[in-house]
Write a protein that binds this DNA or RNA. Structure first.
Lengths: 251, 251
DNA sequence: TAGTGGTCTAGACCACTCG
DNA sequence: GAGTGGTCTAGACCACTAA
């Protein structure tokens, strides 16, 4: 960072293959935080101060600080300053992946069988989940997803026909309903809840497990704008399909 | 976006309270993708083309495209161009939060009781999880976390003493071990796996549930650099402490 | 009013990919 | 070589916060 370019004739700021300057600035700040020099809440030098200290343009400094703010390392307040963010307790994000991706990435064979595929009238529960009127028509599919013919997930899904009138025209054993809906409708938001349950009788039968086998239950709702496009219960016998992740901690 | 500023005299680009230009560009691109005009894989106009089309500076266009790339909506390849990313199947991220945050945010009272708090020798299982030698000393704590005195989580944790020699000097019923470790050591990475299990006898007793009550099991390992700082099993009776999230879908 | 971050511009050099 | 994205600069105007 040392070569301070004079105004007119521009000295080359980067040697070939060098890390970008904004990136070096980010790293310098991360280092000062890591070694304890800047504790959480500490006030980071202003953009202008860093411009003077490092001999870089303000846009470069700004990009470094802005990205660190987006990444959660810093907090910025207009008119006030930039501060080291409070330490995040190591709360983690876990990714819920599409079954088919998990299976094919493991090099295994994916198959699915359709159990139910019909238009029904919304019961009170379904109406509430889809946020539509009682007894409105809804599409209902139940699919068993298999890895090498072993059932790994039971998908019980309701779809709002107003948003996906062509839902049934698709071969839903070839493409995941989630994939289809994501492509066909513009899904903008999703909601997840994870729980542990014991399977109902019919669920245990379809999955080929005992009634005392604990299962992961993921309830997922996907939205298109403010409307609920689909609500699904994904039931997975313990041990067959893992939910896991490894991730960096911001600070 | 219409006011194309002439070169010398600068016309004001923003009315007060207007969205930033780079933000408007992002929205425009997102709209074109949403309404199907630009399908996944479609080649987005180059920065220079957008500069000409929209009458903005290249830096502004660049910021819009760069942020959309970071957010996963676009893919950029130097020398080639910018493309609409493939539709993400609606795979979701779920946040695993610190118990204490969840409880206090609900306005309830958090308490904890220490069940075990001692130094032990690593069994084969523990040695493998912590990636240390067999029979090495390890810190072992078992804590029951309660919401309004109702047990909601059983935390069974092993800590690598080499990384956290002062682990026992802390009042671990007042501050979460995860919080302490995040602050004291520099935790850099975390690993999670979620499963559904039935509790063991002693676990069921501590949680005050029946042996047939399915429980969520979160296995978490936190790293400091390449070394495992701590490995924990977090056991949660169904229904008492939910894991959930609502999030935007990138595309 | 002075200082801060938020944004924008016009122009520049570079590394990369392709034909 | 022409075109692409990646980066950097110097200078500018703005909105916000504080004393």
């Amino acid at each position: 960072m040392g070569s301070r370019p004079t105004s007119a004739a521009r000295t080359p700021n980067r040697l070939s293959g060098t890390t970008p300057l904004y990136s070096a600035v980010k790293q310098m700040i991360l280092d000062r935080i890591a070694n304890g020099a800047w504790a959480p809440g500490h006030r980071v030098p202003s953009e202008n101060e860093l411009v003077a200290e490092l001999g870089l343009s303000r846009m470069t400094i700004n990009r470094a600080l802005r990205e660190l703010a987006i990444e959660g390392t810093l907090r910025r307040v207009q008119g006030l300053g930039t501060f080291v963010a409070e330490a995040k307790s190591s709360t983690g994000l876990v990714e819920i992946r599409a079954v088919i991706d998990t299976i094919t990435e493991r090099g295994n064979r994916y198959s699915a069988s359709m159990v139910i595929n019909e238009e029904e009238r919304a019961t009170p529960d379904v109406a509430e989940e889809l946020e539509i009127g009682l007894a409105q028509p809804v599409f209902h599919t139940i699919i068993v997803h298999c890895e090498n013919d072993l059932p790994v997930q039971l998908e019980d899904r309701y779809v709002n026909p107003a948003l996906a009138p062509h839902y049934f025209e698709q071969d839903l054993t070839a493409i995941t309903p989630d994939q289809f809906l994501a492509q066909r409708i513009g899904l903008t938001e999703a909601e997840h809840a994870i729980d542990a349950v014991l399977p109902a009788n019919w669920e245990a039968k379809l999955l080929g497990v005992g009634r005392n086998e604990p299962c992961l239950l993921v309830r997922r709702r996907a939205f298109s704008g403010k409307k609920v496009a689909t609500a699904a219960r994904l039931l997975m016998p313990s041990g067959r399909l893992n939910i896991h992740s490894r991730m960096h901690i911001k600070l």
